[in-house]
Amino acid sequence: MLKFIIRRVAWTIPVILLVIFMTFLMMRQIKGNPFQVTERAVNEATQRTLDRKFHLDQPWYIQYAYYVKGVFTANLGPSLVQRDRDVNDVIKDHFPVSLKLGGLAMLWAVLVGIPLGIIAALKQNTKLDYAVMAVVNAGYALPNFLIATVLIYLFAVKWREHTPFPTNGWGGWETWVLPAAALGHAPMTFFARIVRGSMLETLQQDYIRTAKAKGLRWRRVVGLHVLRNSLIPAVTAAAPLLGFLITGSFIVEFVFGIPGIGRYFVNSVTARDYSVTMGITILLSMIIIFANLLVDILYGYLDPRTRDVRT
């Protein structure tokens, strides 16, 4: 197992180099001048000075070398647009916010989605099941910006006298609830459906019938045998989902005015802030790589056959 993990970790290095290379290439392909923000033309002398300052006057492979060196020395360089800040500052200030938002959304998804799935499965084909699944399916179809807007309108504007939630911002717990619910909504419905599906499958297994036949209490059958086995797909889906929640919260951050990294990521592309785009891309790829690594390890434990094949 250890060998397997070491191998997987070592593989991340070429993957990251490839990510840097691809991002670098694509950023250059889309063209545009990072130093011209408005229609006001940048005069030649200033443009030359800035190109020199940020090495943009060098051939591409020298620039690429600068980036790679920066990544491995943990110095991602200055922002080309926010001139008082380094990419390291941007990540240090804003990544924890996205991390927390993603984590809370995940918590919401797990704590609400899994019980809903269990209830629906245990009460299959009853009104309760239909009601839960109707809500879940309808919810799955709604985009999170719509959910966010509706939540703000209802809880922070219309009923503001009766709720503690502000319309925007990021601070105490009361600012976390609505964004986490909005972002966690889609994975919550995902968990509910996946848990319901796998529970129904598990309930029909022979060992469940055996357990029932030998006279075990139903509660114990569900708790010990059904639940544990039917949560496996949910567990394996959880890690990449968490990666997705941390990296994909841009819209929710935007609507709630949350100072997360997602906004910086998107803005840096439109602003051609090469170093920020590069820095955040690397960070987010690392998270995705790490999440996938986690899944592979989990698979290895849950299903030893996959581990044997890989190592």
């Binding site: 200030d93 924890p96 916010v97 991390l99 927390k100 993603g102 984590g103 809370l104 995940m106 918590l107 797990v110 502000p166 319309t167 925007n168 911002g169 990021w170 601070g171 105490g172 009361e174 600012t175 968490l242 100072p259």
Partner: peptide
């Protein structure tokens, strides 16, 4: 998950 949820510094004021 719990660590993720608690980690990260709290920023910003709200209105």
């Amino acid at each position: 998950l719990a660590v993720t949820a608690i980690a990260g510094s709290s920023t910003a004021m709200t209105g």
